[in-house]
């Protein structure tokens, strides 16, 4: 996706404004503060107000510079970026059920093959080798507990 920098900034500013409004709304429902006993909502409320002002300022300034035709553009998103992110999310869900060895091997394989352009065989062997190496290093040498999942390893 290609867009101009000021538009992108304005989008971020809009998200921040929405966030600030949400925080203020939540802070209303937190226990009340008295001067001698600032409650849970005290600090978030102050922060939300400052954020509103700043994000508002960013929105205004990016609006005016957005009219300028010579605004720089940015490209956001690329297939490899989405593949990487999707793999991370998949790993999050698969790690405990499948266990470290299976999940991590699959993860590495996908990244090597589809992002790195490595051929099937090298990616497969590489993924398994690296996973096993990490497994032994972290569990045996460092005493970190990694999930076993389905394998008896």
């Amino acid at each position: 996706m290609t867009l101009t920098l000021p538009r992108g900034e304005a989008a971020v500013a809009a998200v921040l404004i929405a966030l600030a409004v949400y925080v203020l709304w939540e802070a209303e429902h937190m226990p009340a503060s008295t001067p001698g006993q600032p409650g849970a909502g005290f600090f978030p409320a102050i922060l939300a107000v400052i954020l509103l002002i700043c994000a508002g300022g960013i929105l205004i300034s990016s609006w005016s510079s957005g009219k300028d035709a010579a605004a720089p553009t940015v490209i956001i998103g690329h297939s490899k970026v989405w593949i990487t992110l999707a793999s991370l999310v998949a790993l999050t869900f698969a790690l405990e059920p499948l266990g470290f060895v299976l999940a991590a091997s699959a993860f590495l394989f996908v990244l090597l093959r589809f992002c790195g352009g490595v051929n099937w065989l090298a990616a497969g062997i590489g993924a398994i080798t690296l996973t096993l190496a990490a497994w032994y290093f972290f569990t045996a040498a460092l005493g970190v507990a990694l999930p076993h999942g389905v394998l008896p390893l």
């Binding site: 991590a104 590495l108 990244l111 090597l112 790195g116 690296l130 990490a134 970190v144 990694l146």
Partner: peptide, 19 residues
């Protein structure tokens, strides 16, 4: 090569977080 370095680094980060 970055094709190998990046996934390895991600793997280490993942184990680091889980630990």
């Amino acid at each position: 090569p970055y094709a190998w370095l990046a996934p390895s680094v991600l793997l280490i980060c993942i184990v680091g977080i889980y630990s």
